[in-house]
Design a protein around this nucleic acid. Structure first.
Length: 259
DNA sequence: ATGACATTTGCAAAATGA
């Protein structure tokens, strides 16, 4: 059986507990990378998730950010909480672990709006740190999956309307350049690799009924090291959680890794 | 340039998101 790995920005773990447990039951990923928990470690719905057979590791924060790794029937060996490169950065946006010979990270890259401004500077600085750390992960020469909400639309194929997003940090030339520099280290953008020309979105704004019109963005990504890309099977987006009542504005992106 | 919606904090309205 291939390994199913998914990434999902849940937009509050507590507000989305029922959505999360339903998705874990129905989609049944082997590994789930979550973002925007918006809660501290002790407030995560751990018991509900563990009851479904998942191991749980969180890197939480009050009100904002927060990331987690879940693994069904597998032990999670935490490598680090927090992205290296700036000890003064207190935002909980990165968690990395080993799971049975696989290295995985759950990433919540800064949004960066308004652009320009200090938040945009923080985004670019964070991306530079991610680049530096990703190089060390490639050097491991083992299967690595970097999944998360990257808050970057890599190309104009990755959003419904370029004009509607003009001036936005998610499509800024600087963010896209940093994205390319990261990918060009040798990572495979799994969904784009599997679907070279498809408009595959993972996020739809709550405003203006964007989901109904499929006016979305592809900003949730799974980057694979060469050793992981060798094993890539199917890849896609599970739109189902976005169709439910009071959904997250994001929906899961997923891949299969062959044995 | 702003607002449309949603969440958290804290109990009103501001901050944040993308």
């Amino acid at each position: 059986m291939p390994l199913k790995i998914a990434t999902w920005n849940v937009n509050s773990a507590r507000a989305r507990t029922a959505h999360l447990t339903r998705w874990l039951t129905e989609f049944a990923p082997d590994i789930a990378l979550l973002q925007e928990l918006k809660c501290q470690d002790g407030e995560f719905p751990r018991l509900e998730v563990e009851a479904l057979g998942y191991a749980v590791e969180t890197h939480g924060q009050k009100t904002y950010n927060g990331v987690a790794i879940l693994a069904k029937g597998r032990k999670i060996d935490i490598v680090r909480r927090g992205l290296p490169g700036d000890d003064s950065d207190e935002q909980a946006r990165y968690i990395e672990a080993n799971i049975e010979g696989l290295r995985v990270a759950s990433i919540y890259l800064p949004n960066g709006n308004p652009c320009p401004g200090p938040k945009f500077d923080y985004k670019l600085a964070w991306m530079a740190r991610l680049q530096a750390h990703a190089r060390t992960l490639l050097a491991l020469e083992k299967p690595v999956v970097l999944g998360g909400d990257y808050n970057v639309c890599p190309t104009d194929l990755d959003l419904w309307d370029v004009k509607a997003m003009a001036g936005d940090a998610l499509i800024s030339p600087e963010a896209r350049e940093a994205w390319r520099a990261l990918v060009n280290q040798g990572w495979t953008d799994a969904l784009r690799h599997r679907h070279p020309a498809a408009r595959l979105y993972s996020y739809w704004d709550y405003f203006r009924d964007r989901f109904t019109h499929d006016h979305g963005l592809r900003i949730d990504h799974l980057l694979l090291s060469p050793e992981a890309a060798d094993r890539l099977g199917e890849a896609g987006v599970d739109r189902n959680p976005r169709t439910q009542e009071k959904p997250s504005d994001h929906t899961p992106a997923w891949i299969e890794l062959r044995d």
